[in-house]
């Protein structure tokens, strides 16, 4: 053990430059990797939250807003409204609740939402639409009902939040996979650096290793210092990356985003811990695996 530690220490000192390079590459790549995981968890959180609130809105025809199922130039008739309501309420398996929102109510809400904005006066009551707001039992199962309602006479159009949210989440997913992909490239570079370092070290210590093999030192004894050396470099990189991730979560999310955008749910320490643990697991694997492969190749007995 004493031997392994002193050899590791002298190895780290001898290869100080390359060790720092490994630590820095590990730091940046693991930070990206951790950030990707944090982003993924945040997106899932938002998805759960938003998709849970999804309702289907069924807008009815007005003389000004016409669709394929409207009587030309006419508002939806009372009879059509009743049929639509029946169709929704019959569907007890999927529908939890249904509200009717009249033009006047829609206008009042519009006025309320934009009360401090010039947009407030851009629409009149007659430009608003009557609509049914349908709350679903399972917000993920909206397609059936929507398809059924979309073709009924008197329905101008149906809208659900998926149409708006899906592209947003698609972009977020692309961003988060991009980050993780980039980190994988860098992590690959880090492991190649480690493999090369070990290879160089086995050459500089070739004579010593030759004697160790000749007198019957165990493989683990010969490999131990190399393993420890890369493990230490990897762990230092992981510690720095964890610091970066924790700092980013604290300063960007907890102190800023969470304060200014209270309406959203934000990730907290549990998600951060998951990400930090993953960073450490990856760091340990990425330092040990290339070392063992490289050492097995160059320390052949």
């Amino acid at each position: 053990m004493r031997h392994a530690l002193s050899e590791t220490w002298s190895g780290l000192r001898r290869n100080l430059g390359i060790t720092i390079a490994v630590v820095m590459t590990m730091w940046v790549s693991l930070s990206l990797f951790g950030a990707g995981l944090i982003a993924a968890q945040q997106v899932n959180l938002l998805k759960d939250e938003w998709y849970d609130k999804i309702e289907v809105s069924v807008y009815l025809c007005t003389s000004k807003l016409q669709g394929a199922n409207c009587d030309p130039g006419q508002d939806a008739t009372e009879e059509q409204k009743a049929q639509i309501r029946d169709a929704i309420e019959k569907n007890t398996a999927e529908v939890q609740q249904v509200f009717y929102e009249s033009k006047a109510e829609a206008y009042a809400q519009f006025q309320d939402v934009f009360k401090d904005s010039p947009i407030k006066d851009s629409l009149t009551v007659d430009e608003m639409q009557d609509s049914y707001r349908v709350k679903l039992v399972d917000p993920q199962k909206y397609q059936n009902l929507e398809a059924q309602l979309a073709t009924m006479p008197g329905v101008q159009k149906t809208v659900d939040l998926h149409e708006i949210l899906d592209p947003v989440f698609k972009w977020l997913a692309a961003l988060q996979w991009g980050t993780i992909g980039l980190s994988v490239v860098l992590l690959l570079a880090a492991s190649l650096q480690i493999a090369t370092t070990i290879r160089m070290a086995t050459f500089t210590r070739g004579r010593e290793i030759g004697i160790m093999r000749l007198v019957g030192a165990s493989n683990f004894y010969i490999m131990g210092p190399f393993l420890l050396e890369s493990l230490i470099a990897g762990l230092i990189g992981a510690v720095f990356a964890s610091g970066t991730i924790v700092g980013a979560v604290y300063f960007i999310i907890m102190r800023n985003a969470q304060v200014s955008l209270e309406a959203f749910r934000w990730i907290g320490w549990p998600e951060t811990i998951v990400s930090v643990i993953s960073v450490f697991v990856v760091a340990i694997l990425l330092s040990i695996v290339p070392t063992v492969i490289s050492a097995r190749r160059y320390l052949r007995v």
């Binding site: 004579r207 030759g210 004697i211 093999r213 000749l214 007198v215 019957g216 030192a217 165990s218 493989n219």
Partner: peptide, 22 residues
């Protein structure tokens, strides 16, 4: 097997022409 080679070599001393000292 490879992992038992060290034990074999502990039973054998080897001296070569070029000394191989550190």
């Amino acid at each position: 097997p490879e992992r038992k080679i060290p034990a074999l070599r502990r039973e054998i001393g080897m001296v070569s022409q070029d000394f191989r000292l550190l």
